[in-house]
Design a protein around this nucleic acid. Structure first.
Lengths: 159, 159
DNA sequence: TTATATGCAAAGCTTTTGCTACGCA
DNA sequence: TGCGTAGCAAAAGCTTTGCATATAA
């Protein structure tokens, strides 16, 4: 089933309506290379495409799409709420964020099912979701940092 | 070494200064039962204690203390940046958040060191930190939800 | 036809910034 | 004494809200 139909069905179930705006915003996520967009960034894409959708509607819609389960809310250390398309059949994935340039990549390993069970037993929680974020330097920024350090050391050495 | 001295040393290294405000804000974290405070919440504690520290300074200071490594930034799904005291000697811990009542608990298991190495190899990142968040229902909220559900089912059955 | 959704503008938050005065090293 | 800091107030985001108008079902 295509995502538009999922949306339409889910909306019907909730007595809400399928609108051009909702479909277009969903489409933006489907077309987007950028995996993780804040509401603000989505709105910028709306403007780029010369679509007439107000900012308020964008905010309301990404929220709706998340509630419906078509988008997933993710938050990195900067505290900005971003959204990514949920692919039901996809393996649960996680994020690795470069603390220098902000680049975000995904990795597909999900080795946490056992851990989850362990925690359920020891805390009494009923766990529904987990999110793992790794922070570090991407290879480029690590290289750059290393060079800077070397230069500084050399300056010191020649003083 | 006590945390004040760590701060003082770290500041000296960066040619920054030890001030009464910085020490007081650090102290608020050390005294606090509340493990996870936003800048706003810290500011409220400042007022509670009748301290004369401006809101801007609180924001700047929690940020500074995080950069220095005395605080750790943590962000849950609500997108609010919170801070917690870093205890160098403590086991790396993670958080489990109840999606119903917002309660946050910690769990000490950290089984991710191997995973971290694996990811370093496959992505070329130099990983410096990781944060795992589990979301679910705490035992109380799970119980409450279960009762509600049972009642609804009973109403339906007797209709 | 009518309840829901949109657009617009304004309000509400949290967070950052510019500038002057202050104070630590 | 000089440079990093604090305080204040204003600006800057980002997000939500109220209300009149438009529109899907």
């Amino acid at each position: 089933m295509v995502k538009q139909d999922i949306l339409r069905n889910e909306l019907r179930r909730r007595k809400q309506r399928m609108t051009a705006q909702r479909e277009l915003i969903l489409k933006i996520f489907m077309d987007s290379e950028d995996e993780h967009m804040s509401a603000e960034e989505v709105y910028r894409k709306v403007l780029d495409r010369r679509l007439r959708i107000s900012k308020a509607t964008v905010y309301r819609t990404v929220d709706l799409l998340s509630d419906v389960g078509l988008l997933r809310r993710i938050v990195f250390r900067d505290g900005v709420i971003r959204y990514e398309l949920v692919n039901k059949d996809e393996h649960h994935h996680h994020h690795i964020i470069c603390t220098e340039c902000g680049r975000v990549e995904e990795f597909p390993f999900d080795l946490l099912d056992d851990l989850e069970k362990l925690i359920e037993q020891s805390t009494g929680y009923k766990i529904t979701d987990h999110q793992l974020k790794l922070y570090g330097l991407c290879s480029e920024c690590a290289k750059k940092k290393n060079n800077e350090k070397t230069e500084t050391d050399m300056r010191k050495a020649t003083k």
